[in-house]
Design a protein around this nucleic acid. Structure first.
Lengths: 212, 212
DNA sequence: CCGCGATGTATCGGACCGATACATCGCACG
DNA sequence: CGTGCGATGTATCGGTCCGATACATCGCGG
């Protein structure tokens, strides 16, 4: 999951670790607390070993007059490679079971602007299915096993059930929007948000496979 | 977290691994998918090594006529020890930072019936504080950094913000109930749910309508 | 009688987290 | 003028937990 997120962010601009973490936190703040350096740095090393990103020590050119007395540790800037972009496209398009759990879905959703419409639809529907299953499980417990459980546990289930129902409704809305070729929460096309580098045209009918 | 959950469940009855997992899934279904055996069995071994649970192979006494031909692997039943109960009480009472994250809070809440009122209040307020912080973070992003983000990411943040606001309201309600000495979602005492083995009297003063 | 789904125990590699360590920089406060 | 503190920045280590996998038994329907 982290792999996908890092690749996605570096596609927007080269960054160093600290910056990456901040951007990650901003982009994924809705679904997870803040990613740890204990995950980030090993992931960066892994990605680099695989050839999907390159690492370049920041040396401001005119800085060699500074002696190596304190062995200045410069920032390390990571840049995505062509292979990395391919890898990202592959990861974003293929949906495994982990694509539909809370974290996995959140990360995929956060990069929907770089995802073609067919895949978006597939992911939204898969997520809906999963949440519906969870919802049924909770309903079962609240119905059949209610007398076995104490009031607090029951209250927890009720709150969870409510959250499920709410998310299903949210997904329904997104799916309907997606089918009618509109951007999220954007009743009329043309106003489509991201000025800048939105790869995939938000309108339907398109969705060609990739570039040469 | 798993440690706390296992200790809590075994306090209700001795169980074997499979059963434990099912109960765990029922009790915590609202907050996490289903715990993996890859976590459960190592945890059981850890708890046993610490002396908090004991492990007993199930041998139905009148079964020695069955030869060891197939080396019948019996079910292993785990029972909590006195030290284990102490450990559980200690874990449930002390609140670290991990007590307030999604999973940690869920597990603590699921055992609120075995938690004294002061601790319940402390945990609910700590959780509220944490969610309020997350909410503020999301509001910041939606306010200040909105133009940097694409429409999908924004939509994700909105949904997350909504969930935060909802949870804060839920917590407020629970806190108010707690302060007034009522069971959750139970406007009048006397109906107090858990008939059975609730160790800690649910509320001060009220609700001693215990049935035979 | 055979297969299949539920019951049941167990391990292994890997992802991710929390704590910790250490170094630099700018600026506010004394 | 210095000094200390919060932000920036890189990095490791131990430990928890997950997903895949393996293997064995049992009851039931076809």
């Amino acid at each position: 999951m982290l792999e996908l997120a890092v690749l996605g962010l570096l596609q927007e601009a080269p960054m160093h670790g600290y910056e990456l973490r901040k951007e990650l936190t901003a982009k994924l703040g809705a679904i997870r607390a803040a990613i740890s350096y204990g995950s980030l740095y090993p992931t960066l090393r892994r990605l680099q070993a695989a050839g999907w990103i390159t690492e370049a020590a920041e040396t401001p050119a005119t800085a060699e007059e500074v002696p190596a007395l304190t062995s200045r540790r410069g920032r390390v800037v990571y840049t995505i490679t062509a292979e990395g972009k391919e890898r990202f496209a592959q990861l974003i398009a293929q949906a495994g079971p982990e694509t539909y759990d809370d974290t996995g879905f959140g990360v995929h959703f956060a990069f929907f602007a770089r995802t073609d419409q067919a895949t978006r639809l597939r992911i939204l529907e898969g997520r809906r299915r999963k949440i519906e299953e969870r919802r049924e499980g909770l309903r079962d417990v609240l119905g059949r096993a209610a007398e076995r459980l104490d009031a607090y546990t029951l209250e927890l289930q009720r709150h969870g059930l409510d959250a499920c129902e709410r998310e299903v409704r949210w997904l329904e809305e997104l799916i309907a929007n997606e089918r009618s070729g509109r951007a999220p929460a954007d009743p009329r096309p043309g106003t489509a948000g991201g000025r800048g580098d939105n790869d995939s045209p938000p309108t339907p009918g398109t969705s060609r496979t990739e570039r040469p």
